[in-house]
Design a binder for these strands. Sequence first.
DNA 1: CTGAAAGCGCTTACAG
DNA 2: CTGAAAGCGCTTACAG
Lengths: 337, 337
Amino acid sequence: MASIHDVAKEAGVSVATVSKVINHYPDVSDKTRKKVKNAIELLRYRPNVIARGLVTGRSWTVGVLINIPFTNPYVAMLLEGIKTALEDSGYDLMRLSARLNDPAYSFIDHCHSRNLDGVVVFGVEKDHRSIQELIESGIPTMFVDTDATGLRAGNITTDNRNGVHMAVRHLFELGHRRIAYLAGTPGHNVGESRRAGYRDGLEASSIPYCEDYVVNGDFSYDSGIQGMTKLLQLERRPTAVVCSSDMSAFGVIHSIEAHGLTVPGDISVVGFDNIYEAELFKPALTTINQNIHAIGVKSIQELISMIKSSDYPPPVVTEPSSLIVRESTATCADSVG
Amino acid sequence: MASIHDVAKEAGVSVATVSKVINHYPDVSDKTRKKVKNAIELLRYRPNVIARGLVTGRSWTVGVLINIPFTNPYVAMLLEGIKTALEDSGYDLMRLSARLNDPAYSFIDHCHSRNLDGVVVFGVEKDHRSIQELIESGIPTMFVDTDATGLRAGNITTDNRNGVHMAVRHLFELGHRRIAYLAGTPGHNVGESRRAGYRDGLEASSIPYCEDYVVNGDFSYDSGIQGMTKLLQLERRPTAVVCSSDMSAFGVIHSIEAHGLTVPGDISVVGFDNIYEAELFKPALTTINQNIHAIGVKSIQELISMIKSSDYPPPVVTEPSSLIVRESTATCADSVG
DNA sequence: CTGAAAGCGCTTACAG
DNA sequence: CTGAAAGCGCTTACAG
């Protein structure tokens, strides 16, 4: 690889001048500029981003810490959005390992040793030690689905609360009164917002809250199976269940069918996320849509804004959610009216 | 952030000595080593990987070029494998943009300007200009599912040919004789291997090859729908169809059901990939399993071996495939015997 | 065993 | 408008 010295020699100028041409400084004569450009062309010279970063302090690299498997469809869509927003931005994406439970590992040290310009963090809860360190470090940060902020840290999430609220209302309007809720991880930011939405929905429908109808899960398929199994043992089993994720809704449906009942004939089911599979599933899943791709795009756009100007206020953005009605919900069979 | 100079000053030694301690050189007295270690601890010093890379020529960064959306389940699993193998290796992963069709963009320049130690490439066909450039560049490379090699470039893929062969044999043993094939992209390495496997399977079963029973697709859901629609218009429609991907198999099944027929009652369907959804789908999909995670892991392991020693021969590895029988295949109804 | 010096490939005041 | 010099944070012969 040709270096800036080679170009300078070829063009018969100093390296400082070459640097100025590369960086579009105005105070270079057209004649010199042309000579340099020719030399660059001739030698196929490309500036070394690494070396440049050492002196400018900018790496043109954005880190991403994702503490959830890539095979999670939600993660995949988020990454797709991140990728889209990064394209042509000049920034490259670096994945940071997620050894969050290894005390010898420091996420911040990692960011510093790599000179990262900013990071987006997904799937780490607010109270994890590294979150606090990160906020204090002053590295521009966007949290996805984590309710944390700082001088240089913003966050972005879906309107989870209203989403579940809408799901409950939808079921209410179909005549359901015994509406169960398969909750997400307790204490988890997103899980709690959705749980609050469930109560909102009941309240708006004047349905009394009944503890038996709320089962905790962890968003997974398996937790859907387990949760539904419990609900089916209830004396007055629910006629509908709202789930805190599509994956757990699939588990719920599987469990219902394994017990010889049908969806939505006997029990209606609503998911949350609107992952790709929701449409493919049989029955196609009624669910709450999240604009995950948009969240990925915006997280990067906002992050870059923060990187570019140190007084860009760290944003807190909430993306709207929406109800997508498909085949897994229907009028309540034993409607009380 | 403390620099090596700060540590040297704090410890009362030269930066050269600090460097030796960091890099575990043996020729440092225990006393000095201790002083330096204390200073490092005290200042929370972490070496700057970027600066180090500038002088050593190693960035401890591996690039990944993936020319397929992250939302593709296959890509997600591959990444998961890559991630696993990278953990604790000391290498970080950088995603490279895939502006392969932008003539102004050079993938190799990108690798060089980022000082990448090696790259894994997925979803780019052998004849793309950047592949040739990459091979010539001498950057250690592992191609996934692309049949390219070079002095410093190896590849890894699934035994695609035998996979489809097994699928055909499975159907044959169930009594099927009119076995159609929904092919992948023509000219595509993986597509062609699987196509060859189809012919192998017919031959081994003494079934004559019939052109009408082969429809081209591009691995997508939509191409499955379109392909099956064509096949259903045939006078003697097939009793079974082997698909070149699970996604296209889902499309095929959708199309069959849309025509009022059932799977596997009327027509048996086999997929390829064994993505997560294959098991969730109804009917659960009989398919050919690829060890995608293992491919991800091995691609990185081999790449790192190549990086570490310049005479490590570029590997060409084929992962075995296997048949997973589920619910989408059954004995042929109108078996000819 | 220790350190001064050169250098990796750049950029940035600064002097002329 | 141009270039010499210092410096970003490191490592690596080399001399002592």
